[in-house]
Design a protein around this nucleic acid. Structure first.
Lengths: 157, 157
DNA sequence: ATGCCTATTGCAACGCATTGCAATAAGAGG
DNA sequence: CCTCTTATTGCAATGCGTTGCAATAGGCAT
């Protein structure tokens, strides 16, 4: 937050953007925005984690309000939700560019997808039927190069 | 099921396979197997749907037992679980080959991934870092060729 | 400052999925 | 057929996420 107590953009102007759409600026939404403004841009957090952080700022925070606020912010393009390897929700704050994840079901590690990998996958699907994948929406599961080398043919989940 | 009341393979021999591993053949598992044997091989069903079908056969069926049985069957390779576009669990019965799904967030349709698309994605990731994707584990979300043509640049979720 | 319209909230209930634990029952061995 | 080991079950509780509804409260217009 800035020295005068205001939030850095784009968070500071959200009140106006909401009102401009006939929506409202409420204390509950202010709490969610404050939490989001505290996260590293491009970072990702689970929905449950965001609820928890809101409760830390305001003990009266109720989950459904947070989830609904996140929906609204998603419409404004300020966050994007996706699903982790286990299907749970996670939010990308201020998403920029192709941002996604790979999860190795063998060693349980998760990585960011590199621009090169994203490009490769997007192009592959685009070329084979024209599907435009939103690579950030789901975590791609499989085995990393290391694990694949160690146990080439075993069955996994 | 066969005319003598037995189940077609591989379902009929599951009791033996379980016992061979030191596991047990129980009435509850029999119910789950009967339900699975009734589904089209290669088909996919949500976990909740399977629980429901089990309840139809045996009203005393309890969810946790079904989920645990599915875990065991997954170890045997008879089913594979994945996550739909909304993150919910879905099971592929008797999975064969690369089997996955694409979901269009614009028109909400879902398709099977074609062998050609699967091949393209697998190869793309393999080539860009060596990651071996399990393409059946998650439903890939994005926009189908038709929707992409209609609204090329809009923001979606 | 007041009133009105309706977006938003809080609550309660529901659905899906998982987990710990004590009681039950497979099934192998004698 | 009986015993013993322990895999499995059922239950209850927990966590995540969504939804319907009545009450509340933004905020625009007067």
């Amino acid at each position: 937050m800035n020295i005068d107590g205001s939030l850095p953009e784009p968070w500071g102007s959200i009140g106006d953007r909401l009102r401009g759409r006939g929506l409202r600026w409420t204390p509950q939404r202010e709490t969610v925005i404050a939490v989001l403004a505290d996260t590293v841009p491009g970072d990702h957090v689970t929905a449950a984690e965001l609820v928890e952080r809101c409760r830390a700022r305001d003990g009266r925070t109720v989950p459904s309000t947070v989830y609904r606020t996140l929906d609204v912010l998603e419409d404004l393009g300020l966050v994007r939700h996706g699903h982790g390897a286990d299907g749970r929700e996670e939010y990308h704050v201020l998403p920029a560019g192709e941002h996604g994840h790979l999860h190795c079901s063998s060693c349980s590690a998760t990585w960011e997808i590199t621009p090169r990998q994203a490009e490769a996958v997007v192009t592959a699907l685009k070329g084979a039927g024209g599907f435009e994948i939103d690579i950030g929406h789901v975590t791609l599961v499989g085995r990393c190069a290391d694990c694949a080398r160690d146990a080439p043919a075993s069955v996994r989940r």
